Amino acid sequence: MSAVRPQILVIDDEPQIHRFLSPALDAVGYEPRRADSGQEGLRAIALWNPDAVVLDLGLPDMDGKDVLSRAREFYAGPIIILSARDKEAEKIAALDLGANDYVEKPFGVGELLARLRANLRQFSQRTEPVGPMTIGDVVIDLDHRRITRGGIPVRVTPKEYDVLAYLARNAGKVVGHKDLLTAVWGKAHADDTQYLRVVVGQLRQKLEKDPTQPGFILTEPGVGYRLL
């Protein structure tokens, strides 16, 4: 995070959102940054590398989910979706693309600030430096967000990476379903174990020699998972 004031980039084309959100962010010690379109937002993320991003889905030049997907190619910080779209499918799609949280419009500024604080805390805990970890022919380098198997880079989705990184930081320990879901998807999804089963299955397909007999990501029945 920034040495002085954490920078929060708000990507939204509604002037009224910036009018009341910028002073609120400033009042609690953040440095607000503004972008009014998707392209402007992507440039701002690349230029400033903000501590967190608040991203509207309904932008004038491109869909916010496209901004999210492209941002995740080079930006690892928290991204909180801000949108009037209340369909569950929209939320799931945004979370699967790498969003850390989702706040519906209209929203209370207090709630948004609380979610920002929580996500910034989680991110700072996840980014403590650790050296590359080798398990068999798999190398997990969290400092550089790089995973290889047999020396060949393994492509993973943002959620797959987040799950693997959390397990790696707790290697050898049993990580409960709720702890893992809360760390990766947020408290609102603490009971959505089907998300976790799908992602762990995808990771096993990419990393295990025999996904049907996992020796890498172990299941602790009824409890959670453990990275060997």
Rank of each mutant, 00 (worst) to 15 (best):
F216T: 08
A71Y: 08
Y166G: 00
R121S: 09
Y225G: 01
R146N: 06
D56G: 02
D137Q: 15
S37W: 09
Y195I: 03
P211E: 00
S69H: 10
R19Q: 14
R5I: 03
R72P: 03
E104M: 14
P50D: 07
Q16H: 13
H189Q: 15
A89L: 00
V163F: 05
F216S: 06
P214M: 09
D191E: 13
R169F: 09
P106H: 08
P214D: 02
V174C: 05
G58H: 07
E208K: 12
A171C: 07
V139W: 04
G131S: 15
T212S: 14
Y30K: 00
I11E: 02
G176V: 06
L227M: 12
R117K: 14
L97H: 01
G98E: 01
E128D: 06
I17T: 14
A71C: 05
V175C: 03
P158G: 12
L57S: 02
Q16G: 05
V198H: 14
D143N: 13
D179K: 15
G136R: 11
H144Q: 15
L116D: 00
S37H: 10
G131D: 14
I11K: 04
N100K: 14
L47W: 13
T148G: 03
I11W: 07
D66K: 09
R19Y: 08
R5V: 03
K173V: 01
R146W: 06
P214E: 04
V156E: 02
Y225L: 02
L21T: 05
R155L: 13
P6D: 05
D51L: 11
P153V: 06
P32E: 02
L25S: 04
L55R: 01
F123T: 00
